[in-house]
Amino acid sequence: MQFVEPPASGRALPGDVAQAARTIVRTAVLALVDAGTAARVRIQWDCDGRNLLVEIRDDGAGTLDAHDDAVRPIAERVAALDGQLRVESTPSWGSLIAITIPLDPPAASNAIDGQQDLTQRERDVLRLVLTGAGNQEIAKTLEISVNTAKYHVANLLKKFGARSRTELAVLSR
């Protein structure tokens, strides 16, 4: 695995963006390695002043597609951060996953439609869901059990009539 050093000068990454990006990269690398055809994975982080730019390349079979089940959790998390995901594959040459994440994602509004019916804890959970946090991350941040985090997320999905976290994020904004 080759890690490319970030530039010494430039804007520091906000902690929440860096944490989300690390999770996304970890998920992507595991997806590429689990396919069993990649011998090398290259991860590059860069910044254009407004966005964190992440490229993950492998030398695998080059069959990865943006609609693959392995890419779906990555796409959902990137979408929750108002980012963009691009997947390019060349058979026998490998795949590229290019991710763009805004350094300043829009702040979650306190005036979310339907939020007047939410408890304070549900509001806290919703804010974390909007950043793409999973149940374990929500539980750790709010110092609650994972089962309690799942319970609150399920209640939010029900209250907003959403079928997924991504749909919840879109409906709540």
Rank of each mutant, 00 (worst) to 15 (best):
Q2Y: 10
T37G: 07
T119K: 06
A66S: 14
T100P: 00
V153M: 05
R22F: 10
I144P: 01
A20Y: 07
D48T: 03
E137H: 10
Q115I: 07
I97F: 01
V71I: 15
R165Y: 05
P7W: 08
I24P: 03
E167G: 14
R173N: 14
I138P: 01
T90G: 02
E5H: 09
Q44D: 12
L142M: 05
A18Q: 14
V33M: 14
R72G: 01
T27Q: 15
Q120Y: 03
Q2H: 10
D46A: 14
I97V: 10
T27A: 15
R11Q: 15
A31M: 08
E76R: 07
L52Y: 02
G15T: 07
R57I: 00
A18Y: 09
L171K: 15
V41P: 06
I138N: 00
G36E: 07
R50A: 14
E55Y: 13
V54I: 15
W93N: 01
A133D: 12
R123T: 02
D113L: 11
L118A: 01
T119P: 03
P102Y: 06
F160L: 14
K159A: 09
V41E: 06
T131E: 11
T131S: 12
F3H: 02
Q115L: 06
L168H: 06
T141M: 03
L81K: 11
T27D: 15
A107E: 14
W45T: 09
G60C: 07
A162K: 09
R165C: 06
R42K: 04
E122L: 03
G62S: 12
L168T: 06
D34G: 12
T141L: 01
H67N: 13
I144C: 00
A154N: 12
L128T: 02
T100Y: 00
D69V: 10
I99T: 04
V153T: 10
N147P: 00
A12Y: 11
V71P: 05
L126S: 06
A111E: 14
R77N: 14
V25I: 03
Q84A: 08
S92E: 13
V29W: 03
A139N: 02
